[in-house]
């Protein structure tokens, strides 16, 4: 098996102010599929091409933001291996019992130096992608909204940036794919645990534990344009796009959910292998790094988090 250890972002739990508005947004407009609810009022969602039971959990709350993001590891051995590495790094871990999230096995929970709560887990109920595993059709009928394929990554703002980078690359074995640097100072780090352009990204900030965006993969540039149509049709607060990033070269559009959590849908970004060179963008070219066409930073994009 070529890919071992931490495999992918498994789910993100987002706090929402109004569940009905949020479900309309995530299910009818973005196009996620509801798979379950629990007695805490949480609602479980997935993108169509994910096999696991859920990749987004909406949690009713009086504040916005990310409760936690959880990554799936390949085996139970990996779970205990990383629990031990995290402790060795000097970060406390806690075990969350199986079933606390319905269909999810035991989770190892910890707070990363940037302030966000992360988790690892090895088991989650698989419900499939709606297609047969024998002679499968290419896509299921009856998809809604922007038709996202998977929850792809999140981008987070946080403090203790250098320590956080060390933690992800040394304790969790993430690989640096792209970065923004100002001289010796790293301002942004795009990190992968697989062969994607990023499975998580961090931006150096004074504030701890901020969510910049949760991102979903689409199939094509045409899909990004259609997402823009839906955003205007449904009066969703658009931030910027459709456009292209320099970083990751993804084709992208940004908007906000009804609680002010930023969403991205994107298509056709780059990929890496373990021997790929790190791509570096310089701070004096940050406009092009972020928005390749306009080469101009959007003030809210740089400053607004939840």
């Amino acid at each position: 098996m070529a890919m071992t250890g931490i495999l992918r972002p498994g789910h993100i739990q987002l706090r929402v102010l109004d569940m009905d508005e949020s479900l309309n947004h995530y299910c009818n407009n973005v196009g996620l599929i509801e798979t379950d609810r629990d007695e805490q009022g949480r609602v479980y969602l997935k993108c169509w091409d994910e096999q696991d039971k859920f990749s987004v959990v909406l949690e009713p709350s009086d504040r916005s933001g990310m409760d936690h993001v959880a990554y799936k590891v390949a085996t139970e051995q990996d779970l205990w291996h990383y629990e031990s590495k995290i402790k060795k790094f000097g970060i406390d871990t806690k075990r969350v019992p199986a079933g606390e999230l319905k269909g999810c096995g035991e989770r190892v929970r910890f707070v990363v130096p940037a302030g966000h709560t992360f988790e690892l887990f090895a088991e989650k109920e698989q419900v499939g992608n709606g297609l047969s595993t024998t002679n499968p059709a290419p896509w299921p009928r009856g998809l809604k909204g922007m038709e996202p394929i998977r929850f792809d990554h999140c981008l987070l703002y946080g403090n203790n940036f250098d320590e956080n980078f060390k933690f992800f690359t040394e304790a969790l074995d993430f690989q640096l794919t792209e970065q923004i640097v100002d001289g010796e100072l790293q301002l942004a780090a795009f990190l992968t645990c697989s062969t994607k352009a990023h499975d998580v990204a961090f931006i150096r900030s004074e504030k701890s534990a901020q969510l910049h965006h949760a991102s979903f993969l689409l199939g094509s540039w045409e899909g990004v344009l259609k997402a823009g149509d839906i955003i205007s049709m449904e009066d969703i607060p658009l931030e910027t796009g459709p456009t292209r990033h320099g970083l990751t070269r993804g084709q992208t559009i940004y908007f906000f959910d009804p609680s002010g959590n930023r969403n991205e849908v994107f298509a056709e970004d780059s990929y890496v292998y373990p021997d790929s060179p790190v791509l570096t963008w310089t701070a004096d070219n940050i406009g092009q790094a972020i928005f390749y066409h306009s080469r101009t930073l959007v003030e809210s994009f740089m400053g607004v988090t939840s």
């Binding site: 916005s64 607060p237 609680s259 939840s306």
Partner: peptide, 8 residues
């Protein structure tokens, strides 16, 4: 102007 949804 930020998120326009009460979150930021």
């Amino acid at each position: 102007v930020g998120c326009r949804s009460g979150g930021c």
